[in-house]
Design a protein around this nucleic acid. Structure first.
Length: 885
RNA sequence: GGGGUUGUAGCUCAGAUGGUUAGAGUGCCUCGUUGACAUCGAGGAGGUCACAGAUUCGAGUUCUGUCAGCCCCACCA
């Protein structure tokens, strides 16, 4: 990068396309993203929520990465040793589905290919698309340490998976068992409880009549899933239900099937619901399953893994479960066993990936016992070792962990970490091992085979914060950067990911995986809908970056967004952010165009500083402090807003305008140098404040400005360098108020902006008068020329517009433009406004209780407010009576 | 059935620990192109901070309730 101070040929508008790529290459080639685990600086680390390998950058990522990059860049500039660990997730079920899709397009499927060749295909896919998203992340400006890029299925992560699996197994916290689990007939695999979405659907409640074997009548049951009756092995009633007490123990005949089933009593049954009698299908309903175990009922499987009816069910065999439902209802009706059908709303479980209705099925799966793992994970939030931002998510997190159930971790897929368990065909033993086995450790038989299933993707994700750092070796990286400083993620994966990382981190890495969990919301479309492929309402961040630049996108995502809350995407807001970038660009351009002949070694002495200089420097210091405070509290949007307002409303709208006289006047070189010095140092410092938010633009400009160091991204975040000159701030505020009042008066009567007009000022205070005299030029911003200072006994001009600022009476003698009636009306309106404004202040100050109970400084502030307003009021009143005469 | 969250200008949103005349962006109206920027400048209109109570000298901000929207959790067939 070349320093090109004074380059007058910089483009007139902000054109991010012309520099973002080269700026990023500059950073990368200088290895600024690299983290050093041997550094003595304080560590600051973040592990990226690994995007899916086959993924495409979407708005959610863009927000997530922007937040992380801001924190990382901020801390890097603070001097921390900063690590942002990047990588991808193998995303078992999602990736496998994508590859299967492409196989289908070729007219084949994974079964035809076989496991080995299928996996080769997936790896090819991963090579081809795997890093695409990471490259897209780079266009956003992400300052990850790319040299450390990891993948959940790379050797290191896989080793960690094995290690953890075996340890948990040895400890009895992983077990294999036959259970009823959520089964997706389409994905053809078991799912964990949280992978099931419950959707309330309009269904039916069918009332069925089951006859007693002895012909003594019927029991009426109610069901939402009549097809499962084929697998009924009992009917349950509540033990205290008087309607059925005497009948418990009797035998019923299952209609259509003819099976003899028992009527039994169980506390689970709700007497109030339906008829108070429940048909029990242990093989296809979780509650029935439990009851079945309690009462030793037979489990009759009638629905297969693919959602069709089982063999041996006569004409129902092979039918789709819903087709069968229709037929069963028909047949029951035909034999008079259907009593009634009523509309009924109920929650139905759906596969969170494909949307297919879940079928609870009994199968042999692997589980993790969660209770003992969950306890410490709850503890660490309660004792403050781990903090959620915002805090309300800790309740959600705790509540889930308190009610946690065992985690089904086996998936009937091929893509993923294969379960490290081997079964011996000779002795029947199961062996779980860190290394692949080719011989049974028990009987030394060679006839062993590995479990066919793979682990839930989230199992390896749970280890991500330490598996990426080389665990279970005691690596320097782990020592330096674990626990990480903060995890940045959406509220949608607190259970899937955050909670499990905490449990695994505490169990295996000896500490919480992160000190803070910074939760953000979703990016929705302009109508508040979730962006989704099916709705086609997604907005491609890459498109926004191409059109408007990464800084624009980042700034848009960060402003008007508070932690944990969703936000909406608006193109208008993108343009607004782009306009801000353009504003910065042009403010810098103004400076660079005038930097000709600027002496870089020049340092103003105390006397060289003008009021405006002191003011802007003081204001910068105030802003700097609040920006830092807000960044430290994760209020990134608020921090960004403060910089925006300072830069635009103060630096550009006022300070730059105030320096123009000095820059264009070549007669006072020292004054010009001072202005350039303050202009450039304040801009340079502000760019450093802004850099974490808008990294490309700030770097591009910073390189052109006078600066120290090689890159803004490794320059120090502004420290306290200026004292705040309260007096100058107050004086400037009075002057600005005066200017605004003059502009206001002129606009009222339609004076053209550039037309000069005389202004007379009467100042109440000697010091203020001196300040105004010394800086009368500032009033040129209101086209006030000449400015005449009135002494206390000067008569007020008669044919003049008038106004007041605090301590300042303002007169614009505009003979011919004054309509006394109109002017009086205007002044009265102004007066009214002021009186209304001080009404509450007056009532406060006349309230004894306020005076005695409110803190002294609040009372003093109210008094000051009142006296300032009264001063204005009396000036206005005097003016009105003068006009009358 | 539990829990959370939102309700502030036409629209999208800021307003930590209670104390400004309640702010910004965008949209709207008026005026303005000689030098940083029309992706701009100056001026202006626009809000009983959902509603009702309570606490307090003082509430957009705390508490309770009501209404409306959104979300999460939950095995009632």
């Amino acid at each position: 990068m070349n320093e090109s101070t004074g380059d007058k040929n910089i483009p007139k508008t902000y054109e991010p396309q012309s520099f973002e790529k080269s700026v990023y290459e500059f950073w990368e080639s200088h290895h600024y993203f690299r983290a050093d685990e041997y550094s003595s600086a304080a560590p600051y680390s973040i592990v990226i929520p690994p995007p899916n390998v086959t993924g495409q950058l979407h708005m959610g990522h863009a927000l997530d990465e922007t937040l992380q990059d801001i924190l990382i860049r901020y801390h890097r500039m603070l001097g921390d040793e900063t690590l942002w660990m990047p990588g991808c997730d193998h995303a078992g079920i999602a990736t496998q589905a994508r590859v299967e899709e492409s196989l289908r397009a070729e007219g084949t499927d994974r079964y035809a290919l076989g496991r080995q060749r299928f996996l080769e295909r997936v790896w090819q896919w991963k090579q081809k698309y795997g890093s695409r998203i990471l490259y897209q992340l780079k266009t956003l400006g992400s300052s990850c340490d790319w040299e450390r890029e990891r993948f959940t299925m790379d050797a290191g992560c896989s080793k960690a998976v094995r290690e953890v699996f075996v340890s948990l197994y040895d400890e009895g916290l992983i077990y294999r068992g036959t259970r009823i689990t959520n089964w997706c007939p389409k994905c053809n695999t078991a799912l964990s409880d949280i992978e099931v979405d419950h959707v309330t659907e309009a269904g039916h409640l069918w009332h069925l009549r089951y006859p007693f074997e002895d012909g003594s009548g019927y029991v009426e049951v109610a069901t939402t899933r009549p097809e499962t009756m084929l697998g009924d092995t009992g009917v349950a009633v509540h033990p205290d239900d008087d309607r059925y007490k005497a009948l418990v123990g009797k035998t019923l005949i299952l209609p259509l099937v003819g099976r003899k089933i028992k009527l039994f009593a169980d506390d689970y049954v709700d007497k109030e619901f339906g008829t108070g009698a429940v048909k029990v299908t242990p093989a296809h309903d979780p509650n029935d399953y439990e009851m079945g175990l309690r009462h030793d009922l037979e489990q009759v499987k009638v629905i297969e893994n693919d959602g069709t009816m089982s063999e041996g069910l006569g004409k129902y065999s092979g039918l789709d479960r819903y087709e069968c439902r229709r037929l069963i209802v028909e047949d029951l009706k035909a034999i008079g066993a259907l009593v009634s059908t009523e509309a009924h709303e109920h929650a139905v479980g759906h596969c969170s990936r494909c949307g297919t209705t879940i079928e609870p099925l009994i199968s042999k799966q692997w589980f993790v016992k969660m209770e003992s793992l969950a306890k410490p994970a709850i503890e660490c939030v309660r004792d403050g070792r781990l903090k959620f931002v915002p805090d309300r998510f800790s309740k959600i997190y705790e509540n889930w962990l308190e009610n946690i159930r065992d985690w089904c971790i086996s998936r009937q897929l091929w893509w993923g970490h294969r379960i490290p368990a081997w079964y011996c065909d000779d002795c029947g033993q199961t062996s779980v091992s860190r290394i692949d086995l080719d011989e049974c450790p028990h009987c030394h038989g060679k006839h062993i085979h590995q479990d066919e299933d793979v682990l839930d993707t989230w199992f390896s994700s749970a280890l991500w914060p330490f598996s990426t750092m080389g665990w279970n070796e005691q690596t320097a990286t782990l020592k330096k950067f674990y626990p990480t400083s903060v995890l940045v993620t959406g509220y949608d994966i607190i259970f899937f990911w955050v909670a499990r990382m905490v449990m695994m981190g505490l169990k295996f890495a000896g500490d919480v995986p992160f000190r803070h969990v910074f939760i953000h919301g979703l990016v929705r479309d302009s109508q508040g809908r979730k962006m989704s492929k099916s709705l086609g309402n997604g907005i491609d961040p890459v498109e926004v970056i191409d059109k408007y630049g990464a800084d624009t996108l980042r700034f848009m995502l960060i402003t008007g967004n508070t932690p944990g809350n969703d936000m909406r995407f608006y193109w208008e807001r993108v343009e607004s952010a782009r306009n801000f970038a353009n504003k910065i660009w042009n403010a810098s351009r103004y400076l660079l165009m005038n930097l000709d002949g600027f002496d870089r070694s020049f340092r103003p002495s105390n006397d060289d500083y003008t009021l405006a200089d002191r003011w802007i420097v003081s204001r910068f210091e105030q802003v700097r402090q609040s920006v830092k405070d807000n960044l430290d509290r994760f209020e990134l949007g608020e921090a960004a807003r403060l910089i925006y307002e300072f830069l635009w409303s103060e630096y550009c709208d006022w300070y730059i305008e105030l320096t123009k006289a000095r820059l264009y006047n070549r007669d006072d070189e020292r004054a010009r140098q001072t202005a350039l010095y303050v202009l450039s140092t304040v801009l340079e410092s502000t760019l450093r404040l802004l850099h974490p938010f808008m990294p490309f633009l700030t770097e591009e400009i910073w390189q052109k400005l006078p600066h120290e160091g090689d890159s803004i991204m490794v320059s120090p975040f502004p420290k306290s360098e200026h004292t705040i000159d309260e007096q100058s701030i107050r004086s400037m505020e009075t002057i600005m108020e005066t200017i605004k009042t003059i502009r206001n008066l002129r606009a009222e009567v339609g004076v053209q902006p550039r037309q000069k007009s005389e202004v007379r000022l009467k100042l109440s205070d000697g010091a203020l008068l001196e300040t105004f005299r010394a800086n009368a030029d500032y009033l040129k911003l209101a086209s006030a020329e000449p400015v005449i200072f009135m002494s206390a006994d000067d008569a007020k001009p008669e044919h003049a517009l008038s106004g007041v600022a605090v301590g300042v009476e303002i007169y614009l003698p505009l003979a011919g433009l004054i309509d006394v009636d109109k002017e009086t009306a205007r002044l009265n309106k102004e007066l009214e406004k002021l009186r209304k404004g001080i009404a509450s202040t007056e009532s406060k100050l006349s309230n004894e209780k306020f005076l005695s109970k409110a803190p002294a400084d609040v009372v003093a502030a109210e008094r000051e407010k009142l006296s300032a307003a009264r001063e204005k009021i009396s000036a206005l009143e005097a003016r009105i009576s003068q006009l009358k005469s």
